[in-house]
Amino acid sequence: MKRLFSAVLAAFLSAATSAQAADITLLNVSYDPTRELYKAINAAFASDWKAKHGDNVTINQSHGGSGAQSRAVTDGLDADVVTLALAYDIDAISAKGLIAKNWQTRLPDNATPYTSTIVFLVRKGNPWKIKDWPDLVKPGVQVITPNPKTSGGARWSFLAAWAYALKAPGGNADKARAFVQALYRHVPVLDTGARGSTTTFAQRGIGDVLLSWENEAHLALKEQGGDQFQIVYPPASILAEPPVSVVDKNVDRHNTRSVSEAYLSFLYTKQAQEIEAANFYRPRDAAVLASHAADFPRITLYNFAEIFGDWQKAQATYFADKGVFDQIYKPGQ
């Protein structure tokens, strides 16, 4: 139906304007929670491009766990752009030759047009009085978080917890490890994606606190009932940077490079930044961020690069086979 409509529209407009209006289709392979965001962004970009160039742009979306999507693209999912949860997942695609090695420097701010962080979603009234990270390991508290092996957000949560314990007074790597280990002992179910965890917590009534993306938490309040849950911001959390990139091999094959690059640049424009803020992603644009200050409390945000170095190391140390996460789950815990 969409294609038919586009075709008819294109025919009509090419009669109305004298320019040759093309039909362009892009595929944006994204991570789990961004469905609502990109619905809005895609509509805005399509009309923006239409106004500037007269072409009809249709952007198809695919959503899933960041790691799973990365794997799908390397297996041949024909993405024009990828908008994933963490740099490692795009690095993995780059390692297979589909994306240029300098992808992260091609766009401003480490190719991250918006950021996010990890917050706590608790039941209304905060019965367990969760205020900060140590409260998560209080006896009896059940924490919901997805599986770091499949979910990008879960990896950020893991690292946020680690960073907290590391940076706490008297903190060191061993203490961090012990804290994270204790934390995961409080997790009764590991969903494969951020959305699955939110469903488990909000819909199924499992758990006392959900570790989630900031935008997910706000969305859950909106969709699931603000009268049932509330968001708790810990004093410190991690700055999560979900990056974006064109998939060079694919856009060159499809001849969609200019549109794809424009699409990603569009994410940095005021208009798009407003949409991102409205969907509870922290915009890079300082002015937009300031105007939405009420939605984005200022908390200490740990810098990933400072604490963990680069993603290759972090992935190998914590999340790869036999890494720290696997060791935590050694049976006989």
Partner: peptide
């Protein structure tokens, strides 16, 4: 999992479920 293109009905059910 391309919405509107490669989602069969069972996959669409999962997608809707994940969209609340």
């Amino acid at each position: 999992h391309i919405r509107g293109l490669t989602d069969t009905m069972p996959l669409h059910i999962e997608a809707l479920y994940n969209d609340y």
